[in-house]
Design a protein around this nucleic acid. Structure first.
Length: 484
RNA sequence: GGGACCGUGGUCAAGCUUGGUACGAUACGCGGUUUGGGUCCGCGUGAUCCCCGGUUCGAAUCCGGGCGGUCCCA
């Protein structure tokens, strides 16, 4: 413990101090408890897991709609499978957890805890693909993966165990795999978009692509501490793994052909972290209604001798809202004052609060307060459900618009190194002209506190000058930022 | 990989310089009071002071070693 924070409930930490705000919110809003006694491992607690499950559900539903079958592969991978694809080994071998013993015996065939599941899945794919009629093979799974990474772990952003969904596919040819890459990207976009998250889609440079891929596309999103947070990646694997794992099939002409693979992963911890970090404010979380475990909280205001008036009306509203399919809670715990409850539910990011006192109960009115702006409105009870639905929409649009604006304001153009350094010191995402030479990228990394993340995937950008490093002709517009 | 800082009830912390088993806040439990933005009062529970060793009559405090954590820089 650093010992310089004083986080009682009465002193909420301002979001300006992102690092402490984040730690405080994770614990107070019961997102994760990072005190699990193994570094890099933490516990998803009730509220956090409830939100995560909704994000998981959104993605799984979309993938299955696309035709990816749900599966669960084992967490252990035998050493010989893991070591089949050379680039893959090189990329991951330094960060795998090994299982070398079982009981009192040393294992003859060592196992690893999956850092990602390609090498677990392809031996099975090989069994499942006999002919072109078996293709495409498309699966997905939500699971934990294990990477013994840098000591700089951070809850949800960088852990040694993390929760994600991974999709794996095999196709008859490269074109079909390309279509899969696009479909996966659209599936991911649909989730991020519904969370109101702004992001940029990067094609990673050669030196930073997934170990074993032809190319990698990543979703990078911003973080208040100026680092970029990679929340999802989609990879075209070409024939690299198919050759290593002998993924062949009999084509329509009766010839043996080699499959093409894709894979993609969405990190739920990081996606959750982005949702928290982007939308949250000095009062705590601000949740997009679609993932809020409780979307509307009703707080009755009791007065001595008149408790029943507020309570009965609250129950009536509760039934009405629940019947409309909205996740609602009636907080009638009389141990706490209304103000106490306001703070609590604001910390939890509940999108709408309804205050019910005698004033409302006696006039069939409803007072609603939206979490994002704290704007208070009073309506007739008859308008309740449409008003709530309208507010959900409005809250979401507001969060999404603010988020996009933040990202737009974070992006700057630099034409020389001094400019680049200045912008990097302001923790911005900086656009530069780049010749494409890896040496220029490495030199750049040595000179500034960030690195080249890639070139835009979703929009085509043309360089407007020479390479910021070597001054030769630029081929790309690249993005530079700090990273996790 | 390099460096800095830190480890005391669930959480946040004072005490450490100058050795005498620990101030307080918050949380939690009970009772009462209150309830339109963190009510107030009383009582109570809760700490192997990270671990091991050393010095000492006596160690949270001093010394040595270990373990763990946080942050910064690469």
């Amino acid at each position: 413990m650093t010992g310089n924070k004083s986080s009682t409930k009465k002193e909420l930490i301002a979001k300006d101090n992102f690092s402490e705000w984040y730690d405080n919110v994770l614990l107070e809003a019961k997102i994760v408890d990072d005190r699990y006694p193994v570094k890099g491992f933490s516990v998803y607690t009730g509220w956090g897991m409830s939100i995560a499950k909704r994000i998981i559900g959104m993605l799984e539903e979309k993938l299955e709609e696309n035709g990816n079958e749900p599966m669960q592969f084992p967490v252990v991978i035998p050493e010989d499978s893991f070591q089949k694809e050379e680039d893959h080994i090189e990329g991951f071998s330094g960060e795998v957890f090994w299982i070398t013993h079982a009981g009192n015996n040393e294992l003859e065939r060592r196992l690893i805890l999956r850092p990602t599941s390609e090498t677990a899945i392809y031996p099975m794919f090989k069994l499942w693909m006999r002919s072109h009629q078996d293709l495409p093979l498309r699966m997905h799974q939500t699971c934990n993966v294990y990477r013994y990474e840098t000591k700089a772990t951070r809850p949800l952003y960088r852990g040694r165990e993390f929760l994600w969904n991974e999709g794996h596919t095999a196709h008859v040819d490269y074109d079909d795999a390309e279509a899969e890459v696009r479909a996966a990207i659209e599936a991911y976009r649909s989730v991020y978009d519904r969370l109101g998250l702004s992001y940029i889609m990067m094609k990673r440079p050669e030196f930073d692509k997934f170990a074993g891929a032809d190319y990698s596309v990543a979703f990078d999103t911003w973080n208040p501490d100026g680092k970029v947070n990679q929340i999802g990646t989609v990879h075209q694997l070409g024939h690299n793994f198919a050759k290593a794992f002998d993924l062949t099939y009999e084509d329509a002409d009766g010839e043996q052909a080699t499959a093409t693979n894709t894979c993609y992963g969405m990190g739920f911890g990081r996606t959750l972290a982005a949702t928290i970090a982007h939308h949250g404010d000095d009062h705590g979380l601000v949740l997009p209604p679609i993932v809020a475990p409780i979307q509307v909280v009703i707080i009755p205001i009791f007065f001595k001798g008149k408790e029943e008036i507020a309570l009965n009306y609250s129950k009536k509203l509760f039934d009405e809202i629940k019947a409309a399919g909205i996740r609602v809670k009636l907080d009638d715990d009389n141990r706490f004052n209304p103000g106490d409850k306001y703070f609590t539910w604001e910390m939890y990011g509940t999108p709408i609060r309804i205050e019910v006192g005698p004033r409302e109960a006696q006039n069939n009115k409803v007072t609603l307060v939206r979490r994002d702006t704290f704007e208070k409105t009073q309506i007739d009870e008859s308008e309740l459900i449409p008003t709530i639905q309208g507010l959900f929409e409005s809250i979401f649009e507001n969060l999404r618009a603010k988020d996009k604006k933040t990202l737009d304001n974070l992006i700057a153009d630099a034409y020389d190194l001094d400019q680049l350094k200045t912008y990097m010191d302001s923790r911005m995402i900086v656009r530069i002209n780049w010749c494409g030479d890896p040496d220029c990228a490495f030199n750049l990394k040595d000179m500034v506190s960030g690195e080249i993340r890639g070139t835009r995937w979703d929009v085509e950008e043309k360089p407007t000058g020479n390479c910021i490093m070597c001054k030769e002709e630029a081929k790309y517009v690249a993005y530079v930022s700090r990273t996790y």
